[in-house]
Design a protein around this nucleic acid. Structure first.
Length: 581
DNA sequence: GCCGTTTTCGGCCCGACTGTTTTCAGTCG
């Protein structure tokens, strides 16, 4: 079966071939179609199977011509149009991907003049100093390509946002201290809270750009400088992350922040909207002729367009501008809105800290309650709790609660479990134990490779258990490391709705599970969610931020997230749900 | 090649920086 990845790849390559030939507009059309498909939840082959060509055409950016090409590719596993392009320029595009500064036009020139077809050819041409002798190239171009290759080999792919964020914030803070700097904001995909990022964009307000540029390109983390201009510079860090910086004057801050936050298609849509109004939008402001009519703040900018403010996390050009126009954007859950954390591990199993230490850390995060959810016996490697040990744990929880009460601290530790969902969908602890717990999370930790049907059935059975309140990290994915297990997410959401079962947004940076698209489906269906740190140490509690960011990307409001509610409301919701099951 | 509460045909975002050039194409975001 042809995967979305394969279709995306072939469409992207077509775009590059067309770019080489300087054919206008078509490359962007293919790129847009490729992007849309890479973001698609459903398998394109399924879409085609269900609705044929017409269904394919409904994918945004896919028209009749690309739809027919996808059809041919699905049916025959081949695409004549692509084969012809490849025949006319027989280069291995994939082997050049990720090399900084090496675009389609350059690849084409190198092929035509030196017969370079793949990375190996390119490396040997560099070794023989052939490139610097070419017209239009020079010593510096050759060096740049050489460096690009070196780095592309070492570092590929994307960085998990929550793990790279401390470094980005450290750099941000150092730039804040440079003289003349009035404001520093990390924009781009970081501000949109994408789960993984490829680069970081830093926006600076200052009347004196030079000291900012000079410091930026000479930071100790810099591997090499990609560009060093008057108001804009780009560097590659030793860990492989690209970082761009841009300095703008105060009056352009809003327009620049908007421009730098993106995504690209959101920006393009806004700029097209400007043109329709007879204006022009760039990073310096919104202009009517030469007169600036907005740009100091983002709020002002959206207002001028007749739109309600669009939160950064929603700027993916997936319909948010239409909703902004109709004043239908939801009031997203805020970064300070969580009152509790429903998944916390302690040193009773694989956590690093005691119950009391975790409670204190949660208090420091301004939470009002946590649920202790250590693993259960099936997870032997974590020394999972059996019926006997979990009862001992309850005594410990009571003790710490009593201590907090005595100290007049308004904080509650609830009794819970991250209870294994066994292969057949039954639970790892008896119903008699489960019914005594305040919050029960069911989780899959084994048999990841069941068929889609079996895996879905397994989780559905757990959801139908009256004592199971939440499904923890429902798809089991680990970013950059493990694919989600196969489940029918629509079916899971349907049963969650029927049974009142809550689905979790696990905030651990490499999980973020559920992910944004699925969260949106839950919000639309009315399935309730929780945002939990899944903390295994006191240092993990701040990860809640990434869960909230992901929830915001999924259009979730406070009402959708049960641990944004007061403890009594949250608990009575779960109790009522247990009754109806 | 796609798309349309201005359009089913005629548009398609905008600007900084680089390297190799004397005016600009290529790349990137």
């Amino acid at each position: 079966m042809i995967s979305n990845n394969e279709i995306t790849k072939i469409l992207k390559e077509i775009a590059e071939y067309l770019e080489m030939k300087s054919i206008p507009f078509k490359p962007r059309a293919y790129e847009k179609a490729a992007e849309a498909i890479s973001e698609l939840e459903e398998e394109v082959t399924e879409v085609y199977k269900k609705g044929g060509l017409i269904a394919l055409e409904k994918i945004p950016g896919v028209g009749i011509s690309i739809a027919e090409k996808i059809e041919e590719f699905i049916k025959t596993g081949k695409l004549k149009y692509y084969e012809q392009l490849k025949k006319s320029v027989p280069v291995d595009l994939a082997s050049f991907s990720g090399i900084e500064g090496l675009g389609p036009k350059t690849i084409f020139k190198l092929y035509k003049k030196l017969g370079i077809k793949n990375l190996k050819d390119l490396e040997s041409a560099i070794a023989k100093r052939k490139i610097e002798k070419l017209k239009g190239f020079g010593k510096k171009s050759e060096e740049k390509i050489s460096k690009g290759i070196e780095f592309a080999k070492k570092h590929s792919g994307r960085y998990v946002l929550g793990f790279i964020m401390p470094l980005i914030r450290e750099i941000e803070n150092r730039i804040k201290n440079i003289s003349g700097v009035k404001q520093v904001v990390v924009a781009g995909s970081v501000r949109r809270m994408k789960e993984t990022i490829r680069d970081a964009d830093i926006l600076v307000v200052s009347q004196k750009p030079k000291p900012v540029m000079d410091y930026f390109v000479s930071m100790p983390e810099v591997a090499y400088v990609i560009a060093h201009g008057k108001t804009k510079s780009s560097i590659k860090l030793k860990n492989g992350l690209d970082v761009d910086i841009r300095v703008v004057p105060e009056e352009s801050f809003g327009a620049a922040l908007n421009y730098f936050t993106g995504n690209r298609d959101h920006n393009v849509s806004l700029r097209e909207l400007a043109i329709k109004n007879g204006w022009k939008l760039n990073e310096y402001g919104l202009f009517k002729g030469k007169k600036i009519i907005a740009g100091k703040s983002e709020e002002e900018l959206y207002k001028k367009f007749g739109l309600t403010y669009v939160e950064p996390e929603l700027r993916e050009n997936t319909g948010e501008l239409r909703l902004a126009k109709e004043n239908k954007l939801p009031k997203l859950i805020g970064y300070k809105d969580l009152r509790g954390d429903l998944q916390i591990q302690t040193n009773w199993t694989d956590g690093a800290n005691s119950i009391e230490e975790m409670a204190c850390a949660a208090i420091a995060e301004r939470l009002e309650y946590i649920v202790i959810t250590d693993h259960t016996k099936r997870l032997a490697m974590t020394h999972g709790l059996d019926e006997k040990r979990i009862k001992e744990q309850w005594k410990e929880i009571d003790k710490v609660n009593a201590k907090l009460k005595k100290e007049k601290i308004n904080f509650t530790i609830l009794k819970g479990s991250e209870c294994d969902i066994l292969k057949d969908g039954s639970m790892d602890l008896s119903d008699k134990i489960l019914e005594q717990l305040d919050v029960v999370g069911g989780a899959v930790h084994s048999s990841f490779n069941l068929s889609k049907e079996e895996q879905t059935k397994r989780i559905m059975k757990a959801m139908k258990n009256p004592h199971v309140d939440i499904i923890f990290h429902p798809t089991g994915r680990i970013l950059n490391r493990r694919e989600p297990y196969e489940i029918d997410i629509d079916e899971i959401i349907k049963v969650a709705k029927e049974t009142g079962t809550v689905l979790e947004i696990d905030a651990y940076p490499e999980r973020l599970d559920l992910k944004d698209h699925y969260i949106k489906k839950c919000v639309e269906t009315g399935v309730k969610l929780s945002i939990d740190s899944d903390a295994h140490s006191i240092t993990h509690l701040p990860y809640l931020e990434y869960g909230i960011g992901t929830a915001r990307r999924g259009f979730a409001t406070k009402n959708d997230i049960i641990n944004a509610w007061p403890i009594d409301k949250m608990l009575s919701f779960l109790k009522d749900k247990r009754k109806i099951k």
